[in-house]
Design a protein around this nucleic acid. Structure first.
Lengths: 333, 333
DNA sequence: CTGAAAGCGCTTACAG
DNA sequence: CTGAAAGCGCTTACAG
């Protein structure tokens, strides 16, 4: 159907080998021949089949990215950063969603392998350590926020969460709630741990009815408001798993006439683009999203090149204090 | 390196052809042989190379998606919808960003062609009609919001914009500003046209200093506030190219003490997820994002299958009135 | 400087 | 029911 190297060879009256070499600028082909063949290739609208090339070179120059779902700007920013870095390094990226389902995640990984990607990045893996037991025939796999997995790039979720909760504590808050995400999520576990640690450090009781499990979405944040407001005594502050949850919650609070931060302080996590654009602007923990994308690709690159003695990476977060946190209500102390 | 059909053939003491057929459940292979070979394949950790298969079947079962940049939730939602639909139809998706640059866009299209994708979706094309003059050797290309291009899925930007501006007019607004995006953007042109049409319909002057060119980002929306507020007399309402612009603007207005909607009404476009979660919730024009993604893939599918007599599709929008629009200030009428 | 040949890992008519 | 052969579109030692 398309134009092949053979077609060009015929027209140029040379062998296919020569065409191949001319096109890849092989040193031992005469300039004259090269010029002629390049010209012909252009005329005939030739685009080399990377498919065929990959088969012989054993290099598809492709990486696969498994994402849970991109309805979270943090995740799409991460994907963009990965794609950008990958492209810089000459890789194409294949994308696939797992919809938070372990089976679909694994299926995607195998589908990628079938396409002979050089490496795979799984964002928000549901099985994390599970890859250690199946990595026999698979290409290198890199994970986010799974610091126990040897090939991973995480942000320091525990410390980030600690800083957020310390911040609340320092503002005088003593009843601090946590709205988490899915339990299977390692980043959720880490952030919850940070939350607990601070409470314990300050001899505050860890009350299970101040801990809520949600799904990291706007809707989840909205949905939790009801339960949160029926706690008694009311918490004076809430630390949320991520910005989406925080914003959903803020919205529901606003509708109910709960003032932020006067009645309730709220902290998010991620510092997505529009967190700063919310009113009041959201206090949150910034993740080095762009950096994570870059490190993820570089780590994968190292693994692809056979570099084996790599370490899990842990990137620092940064507390960004804005308008949704303030001193605890007097009466509540 | 990996396990191939040949390796299995040797171990099973049959020919590679038989292995291939057994694995693809060919009817004329004995059940016994099939079972044995499947078993062996599993044991040996065989994953067929779709690369090799594609080369012979001339079908990579892959489509390419060119995106401008996913920092806009509308765009990432669209990509997700495309990916979901593509996966349902057995296609993998290759992703690439153009960063609003025509050259990078075209480069991406050719890169996809090199990988022999079956079709390409370009979101937010910078060259639109340009594809008509180069489609000779390329796979089918489908565009968004370029209704003049024969293979496209658009939402009815003109009508959507008209409804937004009519809504403002009906609230008594007579000085209505427009904050647009890049001029090269066909959806921007269409929305601007809708804006103009309504003004003309009502014999309102079209004032060029009420029309601003921005870039469709939060930052762009923020940046325009200064200029907008220096118009005299002040406009009483603003129609924005998209929700990101509107939210950036709202934020800057809030900081300056301009009340919305009392002092200024604001309308967005897209109805991204968190538009409803903003406070006040954003009045906007809803795009059928999910539907667009599905139609885009189906259209591409038709073209791939040789279905030639397709029509550009135009999907309806829906005005969603929420909290950022209200009656014009008395004095301003 | 150029060509013939083998091979990447599959599929699929063509025989038997 | 199974195999040998050709071929998809390239690259790359091996010769000359």
């Amino acid at each position: 159907m398309g134009v092949s190297i053979k077609d060009i060879a015929e027209r140029a009256d040379v062998s296919p080998s020569t065409v191949s070499r001319a096109l890849s600028d092989h040193p031992r082909i005469s300039e004259e021949t090269k010029r002629q063949i390049r010209q012909l290739a252009k005329e005939m609208g030739y685009t080399p089949s990377l498919l065929a090339r990959s088969l012989v070179t054993q290099d598809t120059a492709t990486i696969g990215v498994v994402i849970t779902e991109a309805s979270d700007p943090y995740l799409s920013d991460l994907v963009m950063s990965i794609e950008k870095t990958a492209q810089t390094h000459g890789y194409s990226v294949l994308l696939r969603s797992s919809y938070f389902d372990a089976a679909r995640e694994v299926e995607s990984v195998y589908a990628f392998h079938g396409r002979r990607v050089r490496g795979i990045i799984v964002i928000g893996s549901q099985i994390a350590q599970g890859y250690l037991e199946m990595s026999e025939r698979l290409p290198p796999i890199t994970l986010t926020n799974s610091p126990a997995y040897p090939y991973s790039v995480s942000c320091d979720n525990v410390t980030g969460a600690r800083e957020a909760v310390e911040h609340l504590f320092n503002l005088g808050h003593r009843r601090i709630a946590f709205v988490g995400s899915r339990r299977s999520y390692s980043s959720n576990q880490a952030r919850m741990r940070g939350y607990w640690e601070v409470l314990l450090d300050h001899n505050l009781p860890v009350e299970s009815d101040l801990v809520f499990e949600q799904d990291g979405t706007l809707r989840g944040g909205r949905a939790v408001a009801e339960d949160l407001l029926s706690c008694k005594p009311l918490p004076t502050a809430v630390f949320c798993f991520n910005d989406m949850t925080a914003i959903g919650l803020l919205n529901a609070l606003y509708e109910r006439g709960v003032r932020v931060p006067e009645d309730l302080s709220v902290v998010g996590f991620d510092d997505v683009d529009f967190a700063a654009h919310f009113s009041p602007p959201l206090t949150t923990v910034r993740q080095p999203t762009d950096m994570m994308g870059r490190r993820l690709v570089h780590l994968l690159q190292d693994l692809i090149e056979g570099e084996d003695d790599v370490e899990p990476e842990m990137l620092p977060t940064e507390l960004v204090v804005r308008g949704t946190t303030g001193p605890a209500r007097r009466g509540a102390r």
